[in-house]
């Protein structure tokens, strides 16, 4: 069987086999899905890039590594991952939160980024999920189950992530009063944001294609280069793409917002009301938690169903 990176057994020993425990990453999504139950022991996942193989387009990295540090290393070879990059956030935290980057149109969702995971399960043993290759359907897909699970099924020590080439040219532009649907039709748009009035887009790709799209956008109206996306309001709503494109109708409850067009995430000023969950789905969620963590020791207090 696979040999473990030396940092894993030490991490497993720290997690141990009993008592409530959770991982503290950068703490940037600390309250997602609820507050940690009082008395929960906090541990830290190991840090560091284990192996980056640019020609394979994969990177093996310990879960406690800050996403920004990882991306800095990958950038030297012109690559990055689909994980969102914000000050302080870790690889493990980004995977466990499961929230995609605002460039999801271009990079894909976080749930497709994880190829292999080594994690400590409820009984303190180290488990492996997935494979060391970019393609694999050997057995049940534990990797997808782990992404977004908030560390309630296992505590992640090390992962293998898919990497992508960074676009040859990347430019953020702002379009005053533009129809976001028309912006979305640009082939190089890796992100299309809309605040109900103006649109922003990240164009990413070959320079010729980006230039083509820029002239197409210029035809829509005023189009100016900007440093990056607009300030995003603090709360994340998960909507359908159709709901996000028509979001201003709900402005009353959400406050000022920035919608991710074509994706469905809306960054709003007020929290999203808890979404109704089918009773059958809630029951399945409970069954998963019970099977994977019979004593409820992994990150008690957090529940992905309460994630908004």
């Amino acid at each position: 069987m696979a040999h473990f990176d030396e940092a894993l057994p030490a991490f497993a020993a720290e997690v141990g086999a009993d008592g409530p425990v959770c991982v503290r990453g950068g703490g940037t999504r600390w309250s997602l899905g609820g507050e940690a139950a009082p008395g929960t022991r906090e541990v830290q996942a190991p840090e560091g890039v284990v192996a980056f193989e640019p020609a394979e387009m994969t990177v093996r990295v310990r879960a406690g590594t800050p996403v920004a540090a990882l991306h800095e290393e990958l950038a030297e070879s012109g690559q990055r991952t689909a994980l969102p990059e914000r000050a302080g956030g870790t690889v493990g935290g980004a995977l466990m939160a499961g929230e995609s980057s605002i460039a999801r149109l271009g990079l894909g969702p976080v749930r497709d980024a994880l190829l292999q995971a080594r994690y400590v399960c409820a009984d303190g043993r180290i488990a492996g999920a997935g494979a060391g290759t970019v393609k694999n359907v050997s057995g049940f897909d534990l990797c997808r189950l782990l992404v977004g699970s908030l560390g309630t099924l296992g505590l992640v020590g090390e992962v293998l992530l898919r990497t992508f080439p960074v676009g040859e040219t990347e430019r953020w532009v702002r379009l005053a009063g533009a129809d976001p649907g028309a912006v979305r039709s640009c082939h190089t748009a890796a992100s299309v944001l809309w605040d109900g009035a103006d649109a922003w887009t990240l164009l990413s790709g070959y320079e010729v294609d980006v230039d083509d799209d820029l002239s197409r956008l210029a035809a829509l109206g005023a189009c100016e280069d900007v440093d990056g996306p607009p300030e995003l309001p603090p709360h994340r709503w998960a909507c359908t793409p159709a709901e996000a494109a028509a979001f201003d109708a709900r402005n009353g409850t959400a406050g000022p917002f920035v919608a991710e067009i074509g994706v469905g995430v809306v960054h709003a000023s007020e929290p999203q009301p808890l979404r109704p969950v089918e009773p059958g789905v809630a029951e399945l969620n409970r069954r998963f938690k019970d099977r994977f963590d019979p004593t409820g020791r992994l990150n008690p207090g957090r529940d992905p169903l309460r994630k908004p």
């Binding site: 499961g98 929230e99 995609s100 999801r104 969702p109 749930r111 049940f140 897909d141 534990l142 997808r144 189950l145 992404v147 977004g148 699970s149 099924l153 998960a238 909507c239 359908t240 793409p241 709901e243 996000a244 991710e260 994706v263 469905g264 995430v265 979404r275 969950v277 089918e278 059958g280 789905v281 809630a282 399945l284 969620n285 998963f288 992905p304 169903l305 309460r306 994630k307 908004p308």
Partner: peptide, 19 residues
């Protein structure tokens, strides 16, 4: 009968669709 996943960007709960 249950529906796993939905059309929103990030369905709530575990990714049962993926599983």
């Amino acid at each position: 009968v249950v529906t796993l996943g939905d059309l929103t960007a990030e369905p709530a709960g575990y990714d049962l669709r993926g599983a």
